[in-house]
Simulated scan of single mutants.
Amino acid sequence: MVGISTVALIERRVDISRSLFTRYWRDVHGVMAARIPGFASYTQYHVTPIDASAEPFEGIAIVTYRTEDDRAGLIHSEVTQHIHLDEQNVFRRALLYNLEEGASRHLCGNAEAEGQVMFVVVEAGHDSDAALAALNDTAIYLAAYDLRGGDPSRWNLTDAGERIFIALLHGIWPDRDSAIAASRSCDGVAYLLDERHVMVKDGRATPVGLRGLDAVKTIEEAGADNQLTDAVVRAVYGTSAAP
């Protein structure tokens, strides 16, 4: 696990449908964000809370960097001002936590393991270590992000709200039922993964990060594999795509 990271907790605007939020975050906002220099990786997780009355985050993003200097692109790049404005199109809240090295921990397993992905968000006043210990009993992969060192008010132009979140726990379980059972044993709000999209990998935007999933699906459906070659991508986008 790369130690320097940014975690985002995202809530959609109530007047935007879930379908539109998913497509816009992935194919418009995500494609813009993939142009920010310095990202080692950028992954979108589209999620649904297990408890419908819980904190209504529907997006979790994790960005990693090779060095602290690489994170400067998030603040100072030309695209950043446009990212800020674009968030207001579909996000009610976009809480970004810039975490130092050591704020993320890998407890067990492989992040690429097959199974049901689940996140748990722990609010201030609750015990994140106890929640982590409860999940660790059954998870086949588990990582933790300590959000206490991040200050979302330094980024957010949407409605930050008053609640304070201290940890994000990221795990994988053999199946949906075992994930839900694990969520009942911990003190936090649990979210099941619906879609995962890798936008940047190994420092380069993926085809989805360059074009959006709908465009890639259209290319694949037409059998137009030449559209995905590095030569075409470099000519059109000025860069190579991650495999």
Score class of each variant (00 low, 15 high):
Arg35Met: 09
Pro243Lys: 14
Ala61Gly: 13
Pro174His: 06
Ala33Pro: 04
Pro243Tyr: 11
Asp15His: 09
Glu114Asp: 14
Ile60Gly: 01
Tyr24Asn: 05
Glu220Ala: 13
Trp155Phe: 15
Tyr191Glu: 05
Val122Lys: 00
Phe39Pro: 06
Gly149Pro: 05
Ser128Asp: 10
Tyr24Pro: 00
Ala52His: 10
Glu87Ser: 03
Ser240Gly: 08
Ile50Arg: 01
Asn110Met: 06
Leu135Asp: 06
Leu99Lys: 00
Ile83Cys: 12
Val189Ile: 11
Ser41His: 10
Gly115Glu: 04
Gly212Tyr: 00
His106Arg: 09
Ile16Leu: 00
Ala40Lys: 11
Met199Glu: 08
Gly109Asp: 09
Gln44Pro: 02
Ala231Gly: 01
Gln81Tyr: 13
Lys201Trp: 02
Ile166Lys: 03
Thr239Pro: 01
Ala34Thr: 04
Ser183Leu: 06
Ile166Phe: 01
Leu85Ser: 12
His76Val: 11
Cys186Val: 05
Tyr42Val: 02
Val2Cys: 13
Asp70Cys: 08
Ile166Ser: 08
Trp173Pro: 02
Ala40Arg: 12
Gly238Lys: 01
Arg234Met: 02
Leu107Phe: 06
Asp129Gly: 14
Ser104Glu: 12
Gly125Ile: 01
Gly223Ala: 03
Val79Tyr: 01
Phe91Leu: 12
Ala181Lys: 03
Trp155Ala: 12
Leu85Gln: 10
Ala94Leu: 14
Ile36Met: 09
Leu132Met: 14
Ala167Cys: 02
Ser41Glu: 13
Leu169Ile: 07
Gln81Arg: 11
Ala124Lys: 03
Val232Gln: 04
Asp127Ser: 07
Arg211Glu: 14
Ala133Asn: 04
Ala224Trp: 04
Thr22Phe: 09
Ile4Cys: 10
Arg26Asp: 02
His29Gly: 00
Val121Tyr: 04
Ala205Met: 07
Tyr24Arg: 00
Ile4Tyr: 05
Gly115Asp: 11
Arg204Met: 15
Leu74Phe: 13
Ala242Trp: 00
Asp127Tyr: 04
Glu221Asp: 15
Asn89Lys: 09
Val117Met: 13
Val208His: 08
Ser178Arg: 10
His170Asp: 09
Tyr45Ala: 10
Tyr42Gly: 05
Cys108Leu: 15
Asp214Ala: 15
Ala133Glu: 09
Gly109Glu: 08
Leu96Phe: 15
Gln227Arg: 12
Val200Cys: 07
Ser53Asn: 13
Lys217Thr: 11
Gly171Trp: 02
Trp173Phe: 14
Leu95Met: 09
Ile172Leu: 09
Ser183His: 06
Leu9Cys: 03
Val200Ile: 01
